[in-house]
Each structure stands twice: as C-alpha cells, then as structure tokens.
Amino acid sequence: MAKLRAMNEAGNITWDLVDVEGADSIRLCDEGLAMEIDHDSMLAAAPDGTSASDDFGDSIVSDCFIPQIVFSTTVGYRLDMVGDTPPTSICSLFDLDAYPGKRALNKRPLANVEWALLCDGVPKDEIYDVLATSEGQDRALAKLDTIKDSVIWWSAAAETPQLLADGEIVMGSTYNGRLFSAIAEQNQPIGMLWDAQMLDFDGWIVPAGLPEDRLARVMDFLNFATDTQRLADQAAYISYGPARASSAPLVGNHAELGIPMAPHMPTDPANAQNVFVTQYEFWADYRDDIDAKFQAWLAK
C-alpha cells in the first residue's frame, strides 16, 4: 500500500494490478489510489446469468475491490500437547489451566480483541458496540492481559505454523490455508479449530491512472481470472474459498493430494457454524485508536 501511494505521488505507476486484503482496498479507494470498478460490466457473469455483483455479493467491500478468495484467521493447536481433550472453543486460548503453554497471536488487535470480548462474556452481536467504547477496549485488553505472559506475538502469519512444528507453542492463530498446508501437505501433528474464525476477503485492485493499453490488458486478465471456473480452480491448491457463490459447487480435489477440498474451506457449513465476518467499516474507523492502545499495552 505504501508503495502504491509513493508510485502515485511520483506519477509513475509500475504495477498494473495489486493483490490486497479487503480493508486495504477500502483505504486505497478512499485515497483515490485505486480505480473504481463497475463489477457488472467489467467482470464475467456467472454461468447461469447471475450478474457479477450479485454473484460476489457481500464480498465486494468497496467500489474498487474485485474479490478473489475468502480466508479466515483461526487457531491451530499441537495434537500431542493438548492431551485427550483437544480444544473445541476459541476460549481455550484463554484457558491456561486446561491448556498450559505458550500461544502465538497476531501483533495487531484484529481478531484478538474480538475473541477476548467473546470469551469475556460479551454476546457476539454486541461485540463491535462494546469495542467502539473506550471501556470496551480496556475490557478486551484486560482479558488479553490474563494470558499476556504466555503469548508470542507474530507479525508474519508463517510464524505460527513454524512455532507449532517446533513445539514452541501449544496453540496459535494464523490463516486457515497455512494450517491446511502444515496439516495436509506436511503432515505435522497439528489440529485446527474453526470456532469463531475471522472471515476476511482478499482480491484485486487496479491502480488509478493506468494508461489505456495497460488498462485494457489488465481488465482482460481480470475478466478471465475471476470468472466462476477460475475461482473454483484455485481452491485446488490451497484451502481458501472462492469469493463467488457460483464457484462453490465447482470446488474439486487438491491438485497433488487428491483429497476433496470442500471440507477444508472456511465457508463449508460444518466449519462455518460460528464465524466473525471482518467489520471493515468498524476497523477503518477504530483501527488507529485501538492499535495505539494495543501497542501501548504490549509495550507495558
């Protein structure tokens, strides 16, 4: 994002297409760094004729965003360190008695504060109202305080699978695709918890101000790469869900292992019994505030 802004200011945009998370697409759109997209006219419709914007539905989180995949932040645990009772609830994170040992959590407040409030007894549909208040933020940090000494804070999502594989931690949060890869592809003794997973979208934005010939090429690629079949195909490589509703029935088997991928998708009904969908508007507003408090709390 910083690079894109610098390129824009220098008037020399060398990127034609940028892969961003939903929250970043909102900010880039706000700053006028990303081009506004007319999803229906620029992207392919579903095979049954449903328009692109209906097919993508809620995953179009900003006017500039072309959704690609659904991923989630969730918790993985070491099978041989949790005894006979593997965790079934997100609140196991905060249960040092039942599951002693270190945990790995994101060095950013996102997901951590939601889980903290949920496990502190706040009803799920009130969490963001509570989190919008100063007291609510303090309450979330107070809950995290109970495990602070046992937490290793990660800044790259690859750290958690590595720490799990090394036996450094008993459980930790990361993206579901990373856990899938550690479990299914590398056969690590790791289990996965889908409870209270935090769903998020990843996709494309087109930088604003591209010359016409490059823009035409990019739109041609996007039209192809985000059609129903292509989005379903990429699920054969990693367990991130296609952002189109019409792609879901087409999800097949893993390209090398040959196992069906559908049960590993964050959006699979069995996995999606209790999910958070990232509240972009909320985080766009409160991110700086909560992050300032979170970092000050970390430094204490």
Binding site: R27, D30, E31, G32, A284, D285, Y286, D288, D289
Partner: peptide, 24 residues
C-alpha cells in the same frame, strides 16, 4: 469528486475515531 474528503477523513481519523467513516 476529487476524493479529497476521504483523504481528509483518514487524516482526521488519526485524531478522533469515526471521522473517516463520517466523511466516507
């Protein structure tokens, strides 16, 4: 139209939460 309001919103949001979405 110039997308300046959202930029201003993001700037002021550093000072007070909620301004960014107010502008947007």
């Amino acid at each position: 139209e110039a997308k300046a309001h959202t930029r201003l919103g993001s700037r002021l949001n550093y000072e007070q939460s909620g301004i960014s979405s107010l502008f947007r």
